[in-house]
Design a protein around this nucleic acid. Structure first.
Lengths: 199, 199
DNA sequence: CCTACCGATCGGTAGG
DNA sequence: CCTACCGATCGGTAGG
């Protein structure tokens, strides 16, 4: 079981390297040097760099679910859970070293083809689809008005997360988290209020 | 003057490479091969890769201004010009190969130090500051309510652009441009309407 | 602008 | 898991 532990050390450190320099910065030689392994020792656990990258992406997805989704699984579907998840998402994206892993990885791979890009499309797309179902549930529950456009709400929520990631990483602006929360509230509540004629 | 023309060919092709593979993908060997020059012939115009990257970033800024800012210089400051510029920005970010150059470059360099990152901070930060002054002018002109938070409006507008860039690049979704336009309108108008108690 | 070269690092393989 | 190696490519330099 030593082997499994080593594999996990490699993936964990790969996540750290990816946060700083992107998924292409997760090189075999660097992992080997940092973890005091040989390059063959690193590569043996994955076969190719591509499969190593896929493992890192999956580990990022696990961490994301653990922080953003799992804590709120017991809440009933609807606006309350949606708000809780969005707040957790913003906090996670704002505090994580290197910002939101998937925002960065998507930008890095969106001009390419291949399995890593496909995996990112699947995970990120699946997450947006899940969020859209939460918005639909909130509409069905009467928490949001019937003419709400769920895809538009999700678009604006994820937009806020991306801007938060840039603001906190590029400008190191501590007000970014608050701005993102307001933008998300804006996206969720403007439908529920302005459209039905309340101020 | 042959030398200047060659330099411009290099920078122009560097912009194309950056659109696909990021600024680190703009390598000297690739430029030399594609343009049928020697590596020394490429590097001689810039001295170092870093200065080559800076030249590419500046060329991207020139192209941005040309498409998004210059056409609307004659419009009076205020909501009308702000809307025109935001629409042009969205169109440019949505149609450009590789999406918005600065969204991608900012994500690529936000975890590093050095002159390229500094240049990006300066250009992107300067652009946001300019936008903020346009929002302030719109408030001063009475086009937006007095309690508008200009920084929040700019945050939500840039968020829409970033989401547009991801949606069109990663998911190739043709509805992204429309969603971004709606999100930007949302950011600009919700201040002007819901906050002052109109529906 | 060129040829010819440098050391470093890349992903990956052979063989144990 | 290791050593020892492969060809390719990286940024960059010397000298012309």
């Amino acid at each position: 079981m030593e082997a499994l532990a080593t594999r996990e050390r490699i993936v964990a450190h790969g996540l750290e390297l990816a946060a700083l320099d992107g998924l292409e910065g997760v090189t075999i030689g660097r992992l080997a040097a940092d973890l005091e392994l040989s390059k063959a020792g690193v590569l043996g656990h994955f076969g190719t760099k591509e499969r190593l990258q896929l493992s890192v992406v999956e580990a990022a997805a696990d961490a994301f679910r653990e922080h953003v989704v799992d804590p709120y699984r017991e809440l009933p579907r609807g606006l309350e859970r949606l708000r809780a998840v969005c707040d957790a998402w913003a906090e996670y994206a704002g505090e994580a070293v290197g910002g939101c892993f998937f925002t960065a990885a998507a930008a890095e791979f969106d001009g390419r083809g291949g399995p890593v890009r496909d995996k990112l499309v699947e995970l990120v797309g699946g997450w947006y689809a899940w969020l859209e179902r939460q918005v639909e549930a909130a509409v069905a529950a009467g928490d949001l008005p019937a003419d709400t456009d769920p895809a538009q709400v999700v678009f604006e929520v994820k937009a806020a997360i991306m801007a938060l990631s840039q603001e906190s990483q590029l400008f190191c602006d501590p007000r970014a988290l608050d701005r993102a929360r307001r933008a998300m509230r804006h996206a969720l509540e403007s439908c529920a209020f302005s459209r039905v004629g309340r101020a």
